[in-house]
Design a protein around this nucleic acid. Structure first.
Length: 492
DNA sequence: AAAAAAG
């Protein structure tokens, strides 16, 4: 109930939405253009290199960026976008600027923010498909994008963000509320609460954030009117539009928005932003078809996606039971290494591992989709408050979950693709990305069995990302684990 | 068989 109450972000009086300049007068454009049909292939590598030298000098900035070379950008149309080296370059309202500095405590845009924010905010508002590394600041891109495009004086829902899980929806809502605290913009999260949607009163927050099922419900019961929508965001877009993900729901919501607009004889167009750290070839092709009319695109080369700051290790355990011993003896007894997430494949194995460790007297929590929403919320709240140190999880929190203190990720099982022999490369990358947020240090332990599939899958993953995954050669050697964690920089 | 969902 409380979750679905409309929340005002207001702390001060509102202002009209800001419009950024089309191109900076005194700044150099980020692009070197090469004509290629009606689309221009644009290399931003030169600019990025220049930026990284600059950033090297200012070491103490809040946002530490992982290396962002190997980015490929395609800009459509004639608009020249200028990389925003400061938030002031974006013509944001003073209230939004205040939110960025005072509430978020940002100093300047991260690389992905510097590049995409002008693309998002400059009219004509083009669609954007943007890929960038885990922990590089994508959320700020689309949250700021939504906030900057909302007119606070118009009491209509103008921005919508669709997320794959309630946890991510809640997390994005928190960021939005913080960033927009001084703007007067209202926002509401749409996730299951236990109260039937049919019994809810109609609402019209400026910004809506939610999960597909609940959003669909609110729309079909005509409790949420999106006929004035200006901007639609898909967080974890590759999963939101994947066949084995939320493709049908996502397309249905897009159709319903158009229908709502048509019914009121309003312009049916709206800007679409697609953000993710991963876009495999299949999804990428499909995604490019979804957003019509030459979207701006930003992609990262696959081999450049793994974070250098997060060291990866693998260890072959003779028996399944040994995995629990590794967790017990090598991880639970380490002392101060920050927080840990242990990923398992199924809900049942999450419960089993939780029970096993609890019986040995260890203080762990777990989260998966069969738990009550109240329990899920509590577990996340406690973990985010640093009250718990070890969290066992299914892939509910594989994507997007942002907790800076997570230094260690354990893959109790390697992620596999359902009904195939293939490992799930995307999920692997997302899990690993829970550690080392915003350039922080991290380590990953992959617990393998000696049964063939595990080792093969691990090798495929290494090859796919060109990753260096070092082997811990003796599964029960304390020195080796400690050495690994010291090497990763998370053990003193 | 992860996830979302008064399906």
């Amino acid at each position: 109930m409380a979750d679905n109450e409309e929340k005002s972000l207001t702390a001060e009086s509102s202002s009209t939405s800001a419009k950024p300049s089309v191109a900076g007068e005194n700044r150099e454009p980020i692009t070197e253009k090469k004509k290629c049909g009606d689309v221009e292939e644009v290399s931003v590598a030169t600019e990025l290199n220049r930026l990284s030298i600059k950033e090297e000098e200012k070491r103490d900035s809040v946002l530490h960026e992982p290396e962002d070379s190997n980015i490929e950008a395609v800009i459509s149309g004639d608009t020249v976008y200028t990389s925003a080296s400061r938030f002031e370059d974006l013509n944001l309202s003073p209230e939004l600027i205040k939110g960025l500095y005072v509430e978020m405590r940002f100093e300047k845009p991260s690389k992905i923010q510097a590049i995409t924010l002008p693309m998002i905010m400059t009219p004509p508002y083009k669609h954007l498909i943007a890929q960038s590394h885990n922990g590089s600041g994508k959320t700020t891109c689309f949250v700021l994008g939504m906030l900057s495009r909302v007119d606070p004086t118009l009491s209509k829902t103008q921005a919508l963000c669709i997320c794959p899980t309630r946890e991510l929806a809640n997390q994005n809502m928190e960021v939005l509320q913080k960033m927009g605290k001084f703007t007067g913009i209202t926002a509401q999260v749409f996730v299951p609460t236990g109260v039937p949607v049919a019994k809810q009163a109609p609402v019209s927050p400026h910004v809506a954030v939610g999960t597909p099922g609940t959003l669909k419900k609110w729309m079909t019961y005509e409790k949420l009117d999106l006929s004035h929508l200006k901007i639609l965001v898909f967080d974890e877009a590759d999963h939101m539009l994947a066949t084995d993900g939320f493709k049908d729901d996502s397309l249905k919501i897009m159709k319903d928005i158009e229908y709502q607009k048509k019914k009121k004889n309003l312009d049916t167009s709206f800007q679409v932003l697609l953000f993710s750290a991963t876009f495999n070839e299949t999804v990428r092709k499909f995604v490019e078809k979804i957003v019509k009319g030459d979207p701006n695109k930003l992609f990262v080369e696959r081999k450049a996606l793994t974070l250098d700051s997060v060291k990866q290790y693998k260890v072959v355990c003779p028996e399944e039971q040994n995995k629990i011993e590794v967790i017990k003896d090598q991880i639970m007894e380490l002392g101060d290494i920050g927080q840990t997430i242990i990923f398992v494949e199924t809900k049942v194995s999450a419960d089993k591992l939780h029970k096993a460790l609890a019986e040995m007297g260890y203080d762990v929590t777990s989260i998966h989709g069969s738990m009550t929403v109240a329990d899920r919320d509590t577990v996340v709240k406690e973990f985010k408050a640093n009250l718990t140190q070890v969290l066992i999880a299914t892939d509910v929190i594989a994507r997007g979950f942002d907790q800076k203190q997570v230094n260690l990720v354990v893959n109790y099982n390697l992620p596999c693709t359902y009904n195939t022999e293939e490992p799930n490369y995307e999920v692997y990358l997302h899990r690993v990305g829970r550690a080392g947020r915003f350039g922080g240090k991290g380590a990953v332990f992959n617990l393998l069995l000696d049964d063939g599939w595990d080792k093969e899958a691990m090798e495929k993953i290494e090859k796919y990302f060109g990753a260096n995954v070092k082997e811990i050669t003796t599964w029960n050697s304390e020195e080796e684990y400690k050495g690994a964690l010291k090497e990763a920089g998370i053990l003193g």
